[in-house]
């Protein structure tokens, strides 16, 4: 049960945040338009998904930055900072539907690729560039002749919107199909690449592209949910490093920027040296044991 607890929570959260069943009925393109859409969900979840009950925080951030009024995105940034300070990348490991999809794809029994460290390490910084350039910089700076900006990340890169919104909306609604052009084909290509990469590499989007993971990783050392290693108990067996799909060495860097707090390392630790800790000296044994 403990082994599957995270999957159950990931799937449950994914279903709960996309529980607007009416949106999946064929006919007119229709998405949820109730009051819950005022609020962002903590993980990547396209607000144009027919079932989405909340707003995508990355989309919301770009929408405010790209707005004609050039507002400072206090609400979205405050929300993201609060979530980051509470849980950090725990969200990536436990409350992100797209993370779960990638994990399930990785279970397909095909040979897996290990990216050489000299390539993997610099590629990890790509997500910070995506955050700075596509999510913040260009939506803030670019304006069309009509004075409106563009959500560059959503428009040109995000495979989540293509998978959760583009594909179902286009499949269910004939009237959208004549509007498909190069942009849709480009985004489909990116989605296919992402899906194929996810079969071969563990959570490649999270490792290299996701701007939300990049933002939450900034809070890795200050979030209330953080990892703690009991150095007295640790026997340096390496079991935690071996099981980690994100290629973190939890016993050496328990609060690495790449750690998604999935808890797999805690589950396999033979001496229970790893735990979720609220803060120094106040470690609490995690529920995954």
């Amino acid at each position: 049960m403990a082994k599957h607890l995270r999957k159950i929570i990931q799937a449950g959260w994914g279903l709960l945040s996309n529980a607007y069943v009416r949106g999946f009925l064929p006919g007119q393109p229709f998405i949820y338009s109730g009051a819950l859409k005022h609020f962002c969900v903590p993980g990547m979840n396209c607000y144009s998904c027919p079932g989405a009950l909340g707003a995508c925080p990355v989309g919301a951030l770009q929408a405010v930055l790209a707005g004609r009024q050039r507002k400072f995105p206090a609400y979205v940034l405050g929300y993201l900072a609060a979530v980051g300070l509470l849980a950090g990348r725990f969200i990536c490991g436990w409350l992100c539907l797209f993370g779960l999809i990638q994990e399930l794809l990785y279970k397909i029994p095909l040979p897996k690729i290990t990216i050489p460290e000299r390539v993997d390490r610099p590629l990890r910084y790509l997500k910070y560039a995506v955050l700075l350039v596509l999510v913040v910089g260009l939506p803030l700076l670019y304006r069309s002749e009509y004075g409106a900006g563009d959500p560059f990340f959503c428009k040109y890169l995000c495979p989540v919107g293509t998978l959760e919104a583009g594909v179902p909306l286009v499949l269910m609604n004939d009237m959208l199909r004549p509007a498909l052009g190069w942009l849709f084909r480009w985004k489909m290509l990116l989605l296919i690449v992402c899906i194929l990469a996810s079969i071969l590499i563990y959570r490649p989007f999270c490792k290299y592209i996701c701007p939300l993971g990049a933002f939450y990783s900034l809070f890795r050392k200050m979030s209330l949910v953080r990892m703690h290693v009991d150095t007295d108990a640790c026997i340096n067996c390496g079991a935690c490093s071996k099981i980690c799909g994100m290629r973190v060495d939890p016993h050496l860097a328990p609060n690495s920027a790449e750690c998604i707090r999935c808890g797999e390392c805690m589950r396999v630790c033979p001496v229970n040296a790893l735990s979720f800790a609220r803060a120094a000296g106040k470690q609490e044994k995690a529920a995954v044991h």
Partner: peptide, 26 residues
Amino acid sequence: FGAATGEMEDVFIKAVNICMECIGLG
């Protein structure tokens, strides 16, 4: 503060309309 200055409405308006950029149409 952001909510009080009307930012939640901006998020709401974006989120209740199909985002053409997100789905690759616009």
